[in-house]
Design a binder for these strands. Structure first.
Lengths: 206, 206
DNA sequence: CGCCCGGCTGAACGAGTGTGCAATAATCGG
DNA sequence: CCGATTATTGCACACTCGTTCAGCCGGGCG
């Protein structure tokens, strides 16, 4: 019942479930697995959350709360100073190696109402960002702000979703300390200069 | 045993498994579900593939073959004419609404050796594309071709991974007939012109 | 015709699943 | 200290899982 530094049992269970769900997917994790990971009995898991589905809902809500707070904080900070906090680097660094990003991946791919609400929040944030930057003259005006915001959002989320693949194949974790600067530079170069020699050219991408 | 128009039973089972795996994830699909979807008995599934894991391997291999062929064809076509076939639009349109893209999503997120091989193929394709375009003078030279190729690849795959979320929130399927042109225009505009007013400016993204 | 043989099925088994329940251990107010 | 409330557990039940196996059924071949 105490809310001190060490976690309560139900929080322990929730965090264990979050880790396992993120790594293996919800269906591949049993209540007994969660109990073992949390160091408690399977009965306690049910006693605290009622059912496995309810536990999943609690984990979803917890993750949503986390990202909701992060988004709000980020929007506020960028309202005060458009340039300072407004880059993905600090965001990603702050997220650290916690299980939140890995859970976010499952959440977005598995879908569901919670995922849709979260994605809507992120998209709204992206739109607001684009609007501010365009108004401030940092971004060129766009004929399709919605699409531009979506493309930028997909760019950021794509790194999170494909992090493991990129790490394995490219050889550098794009969200690690070293890979992050390399990735940011490539993205910044793209955003600042584009990549084609003749502006307004015909189509060409991979 | 025949390879005519209507599929053989084992191919029927494989396709049913691919659909269900893509939609719900491997662990959430039972052999009985697959059998029902394919219209056969559960025993026949095991009889043809030995086990559920082996069936999943067969599905993986089938999908890998499909994308391998597509990649090879795409590289060949773009070698002949750099501009004509070298856009994602035709690729996505050719993939259509088949289950391959949905399965690709699960494959990339669940990881595993097959996914890593596929991602490596895609990354190699992206690198080769970037190299050709830079050499042809279509792309500006880059200080980090690897990172540039990775960013472009993530951009394309991100749309596939987040397709459902984008459809639900933005309101347009980015791989549908109408959404594709809107999405392509936004991406093309980004690639051609960048989005910041002062090239080489300081950091700014969402 | 009889035979057999590969595709296919239904029933069954053991293991593992989520969950309910009674009993035990811990904690706290009096 | 004691009673009570809460946290926690072991056990059991019903069910589903993947998988096995004996047998059915239709068609090609002697």
């Amino acid at each position: 019942m105490r809310s001190t530094g060490d976690l309560t049992a139900s929080a322990l269970i929730r965090d264990a479930a979050m880790r396992l769900f993120a790594d293996r997917g919800t269906a591949a994790v049993s209540v007994r697995d969660i109990a073992a990971e949390a160091g408690v009995s399977p009965s306690l898991v049910i006693h605290h959350y009622g059912s496995k589905d309810a536990l999943k809902d609690a984990v979803d809500q917890h993750v949503m709360q986390f990202f909701g707070d992060m988004i709000a904080e980020f929007v506020d900070a960028s309202a005060a100073d458009l340039g300072a906090a407004a880059n993905s680097s600090t965001l990603a660094a702050r997220l650290g190696d916690g299980p939140f990003l890995r859970y976010l991946r499952r959440l977005l791919v598995d879908g569901g109402p919670a995922a849709e609400r979260l994605f809507r929040s992120l998209y709204d944030m992206s739109r607001e960002m684009v609007r501010r930057y365009e108004q401030a003259g940092v971004f060129k005006p766009s004929s399709d702000e919605g699409a531009r915001a979506a493309v930028l959002l997909v760019n950021d989320l794509g790194v999170i979703l494909l992090r493991d693949q990129i790490s394995a194949v490219v050889g550098v974790d794009p969200l690690g300390p070293d890979g992050l600067v390399r990735w940011s530079q490539a993205v910044l170069d793209l955003y600042a200069n584009g990549l084609m020699t003749s502006p307004g050219d015909d189509r060409a991408n991979d």
